[in-house]
């Protein structure tokens, strides 16, 4: 009798939950529509975004994903030399900054000649929000982290940005270019959700024809064990110098790739890339975004999913 009462009570509560669940879902908020899609692209000047992606020559479908081909550019130099306010390494301890994003000892090495491909397709970004890294994905488009173009805390886009491809301290072998528009998605600009922390910069000149650009790809399933490199412009080293460190993907989640490459503030937006993948060439898998946190001793980047891939293609084609 007691058992029967127990099971009847259990069944009653379970039935209540099943009945009540759809009601709570409705009360919790409206059913998502296309405008609630966190990957909805937005532009800093409010301009309409043409949803037309590049032609099939640029995009190759694979069994479990797709890639957009990279290009090496014509390597025509346009030197700019300047004084960086005498800014050198910001601390005497910069060579061993025992900070969280440096996992164990600092294994980053300086890129000796960032004017060679693919390093020349990596850009140092200066803006009123802060300094970041980005990477060319087309002749006039730079991919980077969402927080490098839009600050959800102040709810403002960057008001200006200048990029220096292949910068090497006081030298910019391909000159510089100014941002004329920024892009991100509502998942970042409205929700501030780190799962959707990615964006792009449209430049006022086609410097990518000289520097070339990265390929990038998405694939379903795990990327664990894939060898990758991160190269960018950390703020703890001599100003405007490029540093890299190789590792492999340690964990694949829906929105993030997790790895143990050493990074530092200023490397946000850097490509997490393979040296070679099929005809993609130098091929990016993620956009570096965060250092160590939450008790996990690893760094993380926004994974190029099918949706991110699509938006990068759209921005490249604007």
């Amino acid at each position: 009798m007691k058992n029967s009462l127990f099971f009847r009570s259990f069944a009653f509560i379970l039935a209540g939950l099943v009945t009540f669940l759809p009601v709570t879902s409705v009360l919790a908020g409206p059913v998502p529509t296309s405008s609630d899609n966190p990957h909805t692209p937005v532009a800093s000047d409010g301009s309409q975004i043409d949803p037309h992606a590049p032609g099939s020559d640029d995009i190759v479908q694979t069994d479990n994903g797709a890639y957009s081909k990279g290009a090496k550019g014509n390597n025509v130099r346009q030197w700019e030399r300047f004084v960086t306010d005498g800014r050198k390494s910001p601390s005497a301890t910069a060579d061993k900054p025992s900070t969280e994003s440096i996992i164990g000892s600092d294994s980053r090495t300086r890129v000796k000649d960032p004017s060679v491909y693919p390093y020349r397709a990596i850009v140092h970004i200066e803006s009123n929000i802060g300094n970041c890294t980005g990477w060319m994905i087309g002749s006039d488009t730079v991919a980077t982290a969402g927080h490098c173009v839009y600050d959800p805390d102040s709810k403002k886009w960057a008001s200006w940005a200048k990029v220096y491809p292949g910068r090497n301290g006081d030298e910019a072998p391909f000159g510089s270019a100014n941002a004329k528009r920024f892009y991100s998605v509502t998942g970042w600009t409205v929700q501030g959700n780190h799962n959707h922390d990615y964006g792009a910069i449209k430049l006022d000149k086609s410097v990518g024809n000289q520097t070339g650009w990265f390929g990038y790809r998405w694939q379903s399933g795990s990327l664990n064990g894939v060898n990758e490199n991160i190269s960018g412009y950390p703020g703890d080293k001599d100003y405007g110098t490029q540093w890299e460190h190789r590792d492999q993907i340690r964990e694949t989640t829906t929105y993030k790739l997790i790895y143990n490459n050493d990074t530092y503030a200023g490397q946000s937006g850097a490509p997490v890339y393979q040296d070679s993948y099929q005809n993609c060439g130098v091929c990016s898998l993620a956009i570096h975004a965060n250092g160590v946190y939450g008790g996990k001793n690893s760094n993380r980047g926004t994974r190029i999913t099918k949706e991110v891939f699509h938006n990068l293609n759209i921005w490249k084609n604007q």
Binding site: S101, I129, G130, N131, C132, A145, H147, C148, H194, D197, P234, G235, T263, Y264, A265, G266, Q267, S268, H288, A289, N290, G291, V292, Y293, G294, N299, R300
Partner: peptide, 10 residues
């Protein structure tokens, strides 16, 4: 704590 964006603010 975190996540913190790895942006360089001066």
């Amino acid at each position: 704590g975190g996540p913190i964006p790895e942006i360089a603010k001066f």
